[in-house]
Design a protein around this nucleic acid. Structure first.
Lengths: 208, 208
DNA sequence: GTCTATACATCGATAGAC
DNA sequence: GTCTATCGATGTATAGAC
């Protein structure tokens, strides 16, 4: 007697490992079956094809991280705290779940259909009709709490500064042997430097 | 009678197209052979294996772009102009050679061995023993031309803000339908917003 | 240098018994 | 639901004639 989805869970866990280790193309169904302690036929019985199995693994891994990140930041009203929270929670989420990075890279390579749909569905579920980050920035501008900036451009800058070091981690560590992207020291320094740069860069004109 | 490397050039051109269209794994040697107007056997005669062919294609494409970018910025002494030049030339280089993006993504996915070696060799050829970008920043700090910042962190921020929109282009365009990353309007706006943010963020304390 | 033909290896997917 | 056995397709790489 098996409870609901026991084999399914074993398959997803095994598939996650193999996809992360070998990539989507490099992963072998035989390898996944071996690690799950079953055979190839059963893999297809449960997920029909390699593509569908990958989609399932991707969604299972990525959605929870995004959810967590948004929960952490969307309540904040004060713009300084919002920006600070965005930076800190984004970097924390990625460093807690380093396996996210490879999935994001593969999504980028494939055109981002899946991640785009997922992010939009997460926002719809929360009742937003558009991405709330630029909205928050726009409101802060309207209240004179930050200077006139393009809200979308600032959003892209925040994402780029927080995410890029993780994406290019191994290249950056080759070019700058002094850094180790995932070390606590670097991560804390990164949060501070990004926040300082951004806040000094967007505080209202004439303010110290 | 063929002049030196005619067939080789045809192969590299064809391989570049196919690799960009299908990815390294997805590319088929038969497809490359067809587009080059030869057969598979000749491909292996010239490049021995798919891996070596890919390495050649990658280096041919990427090295010229980096060379060009460094030539454009390394002469500048004034820190404001240096930062401005970094941003504008980085974005211009990527928008002139959009095929770079996929190669960079694949390099990131593979650990960046090749691009790391290439960048370091480019700097050695120019007589630098370390990456000169943070050095320039450090000098400007020493002269009091910009405030105390971590030079490597600032370098990472610049790279992240300039490169990331290209890397994640298709995802960003799904999330923010208002933008089109490669449009001249967006690119010029991006240059301006990044420079404004950075310069206001790093100018010496107390300066307007 | 260039070709045809083929060896040799994998892999995803399925058929069919239990 | 789970297994064994195998199909069918495709891929890289090479042997050997010209």
């Amino acid at each position: 007697m098996t409870f609901t989805g026991e084999t399914e869970q074993k398959i997803i866990r095994a598939a996650t490992e193999v996809f992360l280790q070998r990539g989507k193309d490099g992963a072998r169904m035989q390898d996944i079956a071996d690690r799950a302690g079953i055979n190839k036929a059963l893999l297809h019985y449960y997920f029909r094809s390699k593509d569908r199995l990958y989609e399932k693994v991707f969604e299972t891994t990525v959605k929870s991280v995004f959810d967590e990140f948004l929960n952490a930041i969307l309540e904040t009203e004060d713009p300084v705290l919002f920006i600070k929270g965005f930076i800190e929670n984004y970097i924390d989420a990625l460093s807690r779940r380093p396996e996210m990075i490879r999935f994001i890279i593969w999504e980028i390579d494939q055109g981002g259909e899946q991640i785009g749909r997922m992010i939009q569905s997460i926002f719809s579920e929360r009742g937003f009709s558009e991405i709330p980050i630029p909205l928050k920035i726009q409101q802060a501008i309207g209240r004179g709490q930050i200077r006139q900036v393009d809200p979308i451009q600032l959003t892209l800058s925040l994402i780029g500064m927080c995410l890029h070091p993780f994406l290019a981690e191994r290249i950056l560590e080759k070019l700058f042997p002094a850094i180790s992207v995932t070390s606590p020291g670097f991560l804390e320094a990164r949060k501070k430097e990004v926040f300082d740069l951004v806040w000094k860069g967007i505080r209202p004109e004439g303010e110290p």
